[in-house]
Write a protein that binds this DNA or RNA. Structure first.
Lengths: 156, 156
DNA sequence: TTTTTAGTTTATAAAATTATGAACTAAGTT
DNA sequence: AACTTAGTTCATAATTTTATAAACTAAAAA
């Protein structure tokens, strides 16, 4: 199989994407795999292509790929009579991401509820703010589906 | 000054808050300071109260407190004729946080624009998704101020 | 002027994370 | 049956992060 190397500019962008995701707590190798799968023009990359394009050990790729599969950030297909897995980014399922932002907001909300319960100074500034945030998150939770469907409509 | 120790349940909640923030990439000590300032009933805590409540060294508190001040997550007041700083959580300014969520979305958007520019396969699935995400973020950016003002109204 | 207070800075130690190579597995090929 | 492929697992090494103690600073108090 012809192994066509990515050019320097693409490699640089992969590093940049890597740093971007690292800042949000992702590990270096998974972050660069995400970048690689977004930058490459090939619809799918194999395990081996990932190791060679990123110059990273098989073990690192193995661990990273499984992490990204578990967190549903990448997926793979297989071809009949071919043991290799063909990986691609799951960015096409980006609407799920919006849902996970909401899940994040809700986990915040339930933590804040716990804080409210333990505080005895019931009418402090902090209590008022925590209450407001909890209510605002509920409001967003309700409004978001409408927002999305409005957007879907607006773009036809 | 009377030093009233926090009870076990509050200490446990501070650890839980700490772990919550750590999962989002925050360092342990800053994460626990955020928790402490949310859980305590005192309106303000001094540097020294933070070190003793969290059983953490002065240097760790010094570094953490400055990090949290720089990222505008806490603030402090001073009292006349008193060299101590009195720290509190900036959670009361939570509406600014909503703005920073948007900033985050915009930084995502500009990264995705860079990816689009470098890709040659202009009508792939990935290109369509990246484009959609960029447009959706623009839409949210426009819609959010209205959403907030509607909420402000609805709660009177 | 000396001491105390309220921190900051720095060198170092301890712990956790990350990456690697080598050995291994399990399926498919020759 | 031996070999190759497509990975996985594990022990170890390298790097980074985090925390500490101790020395330091700058202002205020005694």
């Amino acid at each position: 199989m012809e192994t066509h190397n990515l050019e320097t500019r693409k490699k640089e962008l992969i590093e940049k994407i890597g740093v971007f995701y690292e800042k949000w707590g992702m590990q270096p190798v998974p972050a660069r795999i995400i970048g690689l799968l977004l930058v490459t023009d090939k619809p799918y990359l194999t395990f081996d292509e990932i190791t060679t394009e990123l110059s990273v050990s098989k073990s690192a790729v193995s661990i990273a790929v499984n992490l990204l599969l578990n967190t549903e950030q990448i997926e793979y297909i297989t071809l009949p009579g071919d043991r290799k897995r063909y990986f691609k980014s799951r960015i096409t399922n980006w609407k799920d991401m919006v849902g996970s932002v909401l899940d994040f907001a809700k986990s915040y909300s339930s933590l804040f509820n716990e804080i409210l319960e333990i505080r005895s100074d019931k009418d402090s500034e902090v209590n008022r703010s925590l209450n407001e945030i909890i209510l605002f998150i509920e409001y967003i939770e309700e409004a978001l589906p409408h927002l999305i469907s409005n957007w879907e409509e607006s773009k036809g």
